[in-house]
Design a binder for these strands. Sequence first.
DNA 1: ATGAAAGCGCTAACAG
DNA 2: CTGTTAGCGCTTTCAT
Lengths: 345, 345
Amino acid sequence: MPDEKEITIYDIAKHLNISATTVSRGLKNHPTINKNTRKRIFAAAKELGYRSNMFASSLRSKKTYTLGVIVHRLNSYFVATVLAGMEDVANRAGYNLIISHSLESAEKEIANAHTMFNKRVDGLLVSLAYDTENIAHFEPFFKKGIPVVFFDRIYDHKESTSVVIDNFRAAYDITNHLIDNGCSRIMHIGGNLLRNVYADRLRGYKQALQDHKIKFDEKLLFISKLNEEAGTEAAKLILKMGGKQPDAVFSANDAAAVYCMKKLKEAGIRIPEDIAFAGFNNDPISKIIEPNLTTVNYSGYDMGEAAVTSLINHLNGISNVKTTNSIILRSELIIRESSSKNKSL
Amino acid sequence: MPDEKEITIYDIAKHLNISATTVSRGLKNHPTINKNTRKRIFAAAKELGYRSNMFASSLRSKKTYTLGVIVHRLNSYFVATVLAGMEDVANRAGYNLIISHSLESAEKEIANAHTMFNKRVDGLLVSLAYDTENIAHFEPFFKKGIPVVFFDRIYDHKESTSVVIDNFRAAYDITNHLIDNGCSRIMHIGGNLLRNVYADRLRGYKQALQDHKIKFDEKLLFISKLNEEAGTEAAKLILKMGGKQPDAVFSANDAAAVYCMKKLKEAGIRIPEDIAFAGFNNDPISKIIEPNLTTVNYSGYDMGEAAVTSLINHLNGISNVKTTNSIILRSELIIRESSSKNKSL
DNA sequence: ATGAAAGCGCTAACAG
DNA sequence: CTGTTAGCGCTTTCAT
C-alpha cells in the first residue's frame, strides 16, 4: 500500500511555525488573518499536498455542505435535466449533491431518506416515488429543522417549500386543445392520484370537459404506472371498445402515450385521424414517434435550479419556508401532428 | 430551531451503565459482546433515538463506506440501468454511492474526481467523458491505493480493473450482418476515438469490411458526438452524396442512428430499402423509430453489478487488481426491420 | 492578528 | 466478555 500519510493543518502549521488555529482560519479566508500569512498558508498547503478532512471538519462544525436528492428514477430525460440544474447551482454555492433514486418504490424512498439523514445532509430535495402514501419518513428532518424542498412530485407540508408547474392548467389547456380539434370522447391515461402531478392533470382534464359540457366518462379513465406496459395495456383496452372507441387520448406522460400509439398503429388505427394523441413532458421520444406527439414542455433545468436556490437561501436564512410555500414555474403546450385532426402539419 | 441534541454512544452507555466501547462494539455486532448486552444496546439506541455519526466514525476508522461514481451523463437509459445495478450490490454490502456526472466534459470530470477524492470515497467507479484525454486526475487515487474501476468507457491502466463488452466483436458482427443483407457501401457514424468503445467499434467495422474484401472508404466515416445534432448532420452529408450514397449506416450509438434516420425519412429515403440501419445500445428509442432499429444489446445492470462487485472484493482483499485486469460481459445482436433489405419482418 | 486548549463522537489498542 | 485510555483532524472559545 503506497499510503503516504495525510497532511494535516498541523503539518502546515509546523512548516510555517505558526499555530494550527491560524492555518484553519487562513484556509477559510478568515478576515482576521494577515493577508500575507494567508498567502503563505495556501502556498504551504499546496506544496505539502494538503487536502482538507471533511470528516473532522463536519464533526466539529456540524455542517456538511452536502444536499441530498431523492428522485423517483434516474432513467428519465426530465429527471436528468433537473439534476443538471441542481448541480450547477449547488456547486456554485459550494455544496455537493448526494443523489439517490427510489425506483418508484416507497420502500426504497424510505431507506434513502434514512441514509440521507445519517449522512447528515444540510438539506433535502425530493420528488416522491409513485406509491409513497405519506411522508412520515421525512419527519426526522422536520424535527431537526433540516429543510426539505419538494419538486415536481410534491407533498403539501407546512414546513417545506414546493417547486412545481401548474399541472392543472397545463392539462386543462391540452384537453381544450383536443376538444378544439373536434374530439369529444377523450380518454385519459393517468397515474397514481396520490401524486399531485397526476391528480392535478386529471382535474384539469375534467374541468376542460365540463367547461365544454362533455360528460366525464369513467370508462375513459385508465389509471396506471404510465410505463411501456401501461401504454400497451391502454391500447388493448381501446381496441376492445369496439364502436365506442375514444377519438383522442390525453396521457399524463409521453411514455405511456407513445407505447399506446405504437400498439394502436400496429392494429391499423390511424393517428390522428382515428384517434388524436397528447402526452406530457416533452420527452425526446415524443419527437421520434410518428406522428410526433403533442405534449407539455417545462424546463427540468429551471426546476432544479429553483429548488436548490430556494433550499440554499433557506439554509442561509435569507428566505423562510413560512413565507415561500411554493414556487410555480412556467410550462408551455407544444402542438405537433399527433393532435391535428384537420390537416397534417 | 427545534434542535434536540444528538444522542451519542455515551448517552447509551450511561443509560445502560456500561462503557462507550461496549456500545460501539455492540452496535457493530461485534462477536465478543454478549448477545444479551447487544440486544439491550439496540433497544436503548432505538429508545433514545440514536443515530450514528458517520463523521466521527470515518474520522477515526478512515473508512467511509462510500463509493464514488462518475458517469459521462445521467440522461441515458443505459447509464441509469448501470447505476441501478451498482446501487443494488453496493447497498447490499453496506456501501453508499455518491453519483456525479461529467456531462461529457473532461473539465467537469476532473472537478468531480477532486470532489470524490476530498470526500474520501473508499473506491471509485468511472465511465470516462467524451473528450477526456488522460487520466492524470485519477493519479491521486492510485497513489493512495484507492481502487478505481472503469466501466464501459474505460482506460487501460495497470492499477485498475475494467468492465466492458467486446465492442470489437459486436461491431464486427453487426457489420457482417449488414453485409450479409447485401450492403457494401456501409457508412459508419463513430465517436471520439479516444474512447475505447468507439475505437473498438470502428476496428470491428473495418475488420468486417476487410474480411469481405470491401475497401474501407474514408468518406464513409463520420466521427461525431453521436447526439441528435450529429445524426442530423450525418443525414445531410448522405443527402449531399448524390449517386454515391451508402446503402447502409452503422452508428456507434442508437441516438445518432435514430436522428439520422428521421432526417433521411423526411427527405424521402426509404429505410431499409434505400439505406439499411444499425445502431448500438438497445436504447428504448430504437423500438420507437420506424422501422425499428437493429442494434447491439448489453445489460447495463449486469455491468454495474460486475463493477461494484469487483471493487468491493478488492476492498475486502478478496481479489486483486493485478490478477483481474478486465471483465468482459456478454452482448447480443438484435436484428430488427431497419436492416432487413430482403423482407420486412 | 495570532495562539492554547478543549473537545466534537467515535474506535483501536491494551488491559483486565 | 468488558472497560480504560488515547487520540483521529478540525474548529471554537477565550486569551493575549
